[in-house]
Design a protein around this nucleic acid. Structure first.
Ligand code: FES
Ligand code: FES
Lengths: 152, 152
DNA sequence: AAGTATTAAGACTATTATATCTTAATATAG
DNA sequence: CTATATTAAGATATAATAGTCTTAATACTT
């Protein structure tokens, strides 16, 4: 599972957005970046990608910000990740041979494809609603660490 | 599973070495790098790491090269990867929160830790012997693609 | 209409990962 | 002892990722 920091930040921001923006109000990127200890301009660029992908909506000017473009139960983890890391490879086999999955050349293939299917199913099924619900039940301070301590 | 190219190359070379070096002869790094389409000097540096970690033995001069330092059934996939990517994080959760695994803060934790355990077990149990045996049963041309086609 | 708050966009810089090049050390062969 | 084949080590170069800065566009408020 090789996610760029952009994807990780995008996911965290989307989850927080889901938790904060139950209503139709826009949340400023500044709020998100402060809360999550993500560099503001960096997060801005990431969320622009999500807006282009029509996962978020944005509005400029006072009272502007970003918000989800559709109900959180219709946005999956995979939607977000694939919008940001266009060419990511979920759970790449350690040997990364050509034709992986098609031909049976890799000595790890059997084990690996098994894992891979499960992970792929998970990320394409879990929605922002699920994630925000689960994290509400947990310590709400989950995001409030300093940037340096995040093991991204 | 975020492996560097160094680790992937190190794994591929170790497997090939196992297949070629059943006896006690040294195999030159040039042979390995040609066969695997890995830049020679790059592979040299990677194998130096494995030598320092006492997974390989090396010898300079004519008839020199590298060979396994112990029987292939005593070298695991994990041995190799951890020698090269000293600070790798096997199957990092997409959210990558602090204290992952210790505290229950992450909404994906339950699913993810489950995968992670299985993958960790696999890489710490599978040995070079296993890998080379399995790949012998497969198409022996598995490594003979051009570098550009490898989806590392 | 003017001023302000905000995202959009793109240029720029910094850091890390990947790859190459050069020289040194060492072992063998003749 | 000399020439040669090879790994060791480190300096340099290139590419990819991460992060910063500046300016433009837009929408609200007064
Ligand atoms: S290269 Fe596809 S499973 Fe290993
Ligand atoms: S951060 Fe540990 S499982 Fe998600």
């Amino acid at each position: 599972m090789h996610l760029s920091k952009s994807s990780i930040y995008g996911l965290r921001a989307s989850i927080l957005l889901t938790k904060m923006g139950g209503d139709k109000n826009y949340v400023t990127i500044r709020e998100l970046s402060d809360e999550l200890n993500i560099p503001f301009h960096f997060l801005t660029k990431i969320l622009q990608e999500l807006s282009k992908a029509e996962i978020l909506e944005s509005l400029r000017g006072p009272n502007g910000g970003v918000r989800l473009a559709k109900p959180p139960n219709r946005i999956t983890l995979k939607d977000i990740v694939t919008s940001i890391d266009v060419k990511y490879d979920i759970l790449n086999c350690p040997l990364g041979l050509p034709g992986c999955g098609e031909h049976s050349l890799c000595p790890l293939q059997q084990d690996w494809q098994n894992f891979k299917l499960k992970v792929e199913r998970m990320i394409s099924e879990v929605t922002l609603e699920d994630l925000s619900a689960r994290s509400k039940n947990n310590d709400n301070d989950m995001y409030h660490r300093t940037h340096n301590h995040l093991n991204a």
